Lab assay of single mutants.
Amino acid sequence: MTEYKLVVVGAGGVGKSALTIQLIQNHFVDEYDPTIEDSYRKQVVIDGETCLLDILDTAGQEEYSAMRDQYMRTGEGFLCVFAINNTKSFEDIHHYREQIKRVKDSEDVPMVLVGNKCDLPSRTVDTKQAQDLARSYGIPFIETSAKTRQGVDDAFYTLVREIRKHKEKMSKDGKKKKKKSKTKCVIM
């Protein structure tokens, strides 16, 4: 069974824990209790493949930012979460993405942009803004509501699919490099 290491990042209060708990335990946590770091595991079937999701729910508070490099190193894919009623959390996505790329030393890291709290009427981040940002990053965008469960499975499952595509691409690139290195030079 394939294991996928997913990391949920975003500013404090955007609903990272609520999304994760909704996926794992099928219930909505409405009281806000700032996370330092929590880890969850769940076995699911995605596109006919049974897999184990190892999900790291991270601290959004700035005082825990020193811990970010460590979990970013171990993560295979990242859910970059903002709240649709919090423009600052949307603007912060850029910083999370840049930090992930720096730590992973790669421009090509599996990510999904997630606009959470889409059940709320007080939207300050337009869907088109988020779609445009995701398009500019070359990553999928999904709106979710941890409260109603809308888009929750889709967000995590899409990230797994992005990781699969990335692994497939990397193995193809690896095979191309191996083929090239088999060419021999004969000096007579």
Rank of each mutant, 00 (worst) to 15 (best):
R149A: 14
T127R: 03
V186A: 15
A155C: 08
K128P: 05
R164C: 09
D126P: 02
K128T: 08
D153Y: 11
S145I: 07
D154S: 09
S145W: 04
R164I: 15
R161I: 00
D154C: 07
E168A: 07
R149Q: 06
A134R: 01
V160E: 02
R149P: 13
D154Q: 12
S145H: 13
A130Y: 15
D126V: 10
T183A: 15
D126N: 14
T127L: 13
H166A: 08
K128E: 07
D153K: 10
F141H: 01
R135I: 07
K178T: 14
S136D: 14
K178I: 10
D153V: 12
K128M: 10
V152H: 08
Q131M: 11
G151F: 09
M188L: 08
K177V: 04
I142S: 02
K178A: 13
K169D: 15
A155S: 04
V152D: 05
D132V: 03
D153T: 12
Y157S: 14
V125C: 05
T158Q: 12
K178R: 06
K184W: 00
K165N: 11
M170W: 11
E162F: 02
E162N: 04
K175I: 05
K169C: 09
H166T: 11
A146S: 00
M170S: 07
R164E: 15
D132C: 04
A155N: 00
R161Y: 05
S136T: 09
K169Y: 12
Y137Q: 06
R164P: 00
L133M: 09
D126C: 10
L133N: 04
A155D: 00
M188D: 15
Y157G: 13
Y137M: 14
D126W: 08
L133A: 07
T127K: 05
V160I: 10
D153W: 07
G138Q: 02
Q129N: 08
D173S: 12
T127S: 13
D173I: 03
L133R: 08
M170G: 12
F156L: 06
V125E: 11
T183Q: 14
K128I: 10
L133S: 04
Y137S: 09
D173Q: 07
Q131T: 07
K172V: 06
K175Y: 06
L159E: 00
S181G: 10
E162L: 04
H166F: 09
K172A: 13
R164S: 13
K172E: 14
S145P: 00
R164K: 15
E162C: 02
I142C: 06
F156Y: 06
T183L: 00
E162A: 04
E168N: 06
G138T: 01
S181W: 01
D154W: 03
A130N: 06
Q129M: 10
K180W: 07
E162T: 04
V152A: 09
K177T: 13
Q131A: 11
R135F: 03
F156I: 12
S136R: 08
I139G: 02
F156D: 00
T158G: 05
T183M: 04
T144F: 02
V152G: 07
S171G: 15
T144R: 01
Y157R: 14
L159I: 06
R164F: 15
C185G: 15
R135N: 09
K175F: 04
T158E: 12
T127P: 05
D132S: 05
F141V: 09
V160Y: 05
K165F: 04
K176T: 15
S145M: 03
A130W: 15
A155T: 02
I139E: 01
K175S: 12
Q129W: 14
K128D: 07
D132G: 04
Y137K: 05
L159R: 00
K172D: 12
L133W: 12
H166N: 11
M188E: 15
L159T: 00
R164H: 14
Q129K: 10
T158L: 09
K165Y: 03
H166V: 10
D173V: 02
D132M: 04
K165G: 08
K167F: 02
V160C: 05
T144G: 03
L133Y: 12
M170E: 10
S181Q: 14
K180G: 14
Q150V: 06
V186S: 14
T127D: 13
T183F: 00
G151E: 10
Q131L: 07
K167P: 02
R149W: 14
E143R: 02
K128G: 06
H166E: 04
A155I: 11
R135Y: 03
Q150F: 07
V125F: 15
Y137H: 05
K182W: 01
K128R: 06
Q129C: 14
T127M: 11
V125W: 12
K167R: 08
K180V: 12
K175R: 10
R149Y: 12
S145E: 15
G174L: 13
K169N: 12
D154V: 06
A146L: 02
V125D: 13
D154E: 13
V160T: 05
G138Y: 00
K128F: 11
R135C: 10
D132L: 03
S181E: 14
E168S: 11
K182Y: 02
R135E: 09
D132K: 05
D126K: 10
K167C: 03
M170D: 11
D132H: 03
G151Q: 06
F156E: 00
D132Q: 05
S136I: 05
I139L: 10
D154K: 09
Q129P: 09
Y157A: 14
R161G: 12
M170N: 14
K175G: 13
A130K: 02
V152I: 13
C185D: 15
Q131N: 08
F156T: 01
Q150T: 15
K176I: 01
I187M: 15
V160M: 08
D132I: 03
D153R: 09
K167Q: 08
L159W: 00
L159D: 00
K128N: 11
V160L: 07
K178E: 15
G151P: 10
A155L: 07
A130E: 05
V186F: 02
T148M: 08
H166R: 12
A155V: 10
D126Y: 14
Q131Y: 06
D154G: 07
K165T: 08
G151H: 08
V186E: 15
K169T: 13
K178C: 11
V125P: 01
L159G: 00
G174A: 05
G174C: 02
Q129R: 11
D132N: 07
K177D: 14
I187G: 15
M188V: 05
E143V: 03
D132P: 01
M188G: 15
T144H: 01
Y137N: 08
E162M: 07
T158A: 12
S136P: 01
S145T: 15
S181P: 11
Q131V: 08
K167A: 07
A134V: 03
E162W: 01
R135G: 05
M170V: 08
V186P: 14
T158W: 05
K172P: 09
K172M: 13
K167D: 10
V152S: 07
C185R: 15
K182L: 04
H166P: 01
K178G: 11
S181Y: 02
A155Y: 00
Q131E: 14
K169I: 10
T148G: 10
A134G: 02
Y157I: 15
T127W: 08
F141S: 02
R135Q: 09
D153F: 09
K177G: 08
R149F: 09
Y157Q: 13
V186N: 12
G174I: 09
G151V: 11
K184G: 13
A130S: 06
A134T: 03
D153N: 10
T144V: 09
D132F: 03
A130H: 07
K178H: 11
R135A: 13
T127E: 11
A130C: 12
H166G: 06
R164A: 13
G174P: 11
K172G: 14
A155R: 00
K165A: 10
K176P: 14
K176D: 13
L159S: 00
Q131H: 03
D154H: 08
L159N: 00
G138H: 04
R161L: 01
T127F: 15
D132R: 03
F156C: 02
S136V: 07
V160W: 04
R135L: 08
A130L: 13
R149G: 15
K128H: 06
K128S: 11
C185Q: 15
I139D: 02
D126T: 06
I163C: 08
F156S: 00
H166Q: 09
A134H: 01
S181R: 11
I139R: 01
D153C: 10
D126Q: 07
K172R: 13
R161W: 01
Y157P: 04
L133E: 06
I142K: 02
G138D: 07
R149N: 05
K172L: 08
R135W: 04
K177S: 12
Q129G: 13
V152F: 13
I142P: 00
S181A: 09
I163G: 00
D132Y: 02
L159Y: 00
K182F: 02
E162R: 03
A130D: 04
G138R: 02
G138A: 07
D126G: 11
T183V: 01
G138I: 00
L133K: 04
V152E: 07
A130G: 06
K167Y: 02
D154L: 09
Y157T: 14
S136H: 11
A130I: 15
M188S: 14
D126L: 08
Q129E: 09
A146Y: 00
G138W: 00
F156P: 00
R164W: 08
V152M: 13
Y157W: 07
R164T: 14
S145Y: 03
K178L: 08
E168F: 06
F156G: 00
Y137I: 12
T183R: 11
D132E: 11
K169L: 08
K177F: 02
Y157E: 14
T158K: 06
T158D: 04
G151S: 11
V186G: 14
L159P: 00
L159C: 03
F156H: 01
K165L: 05
E168V: 03
K178Q: 15
K167N: 10
T183P: 15
K165E: 11
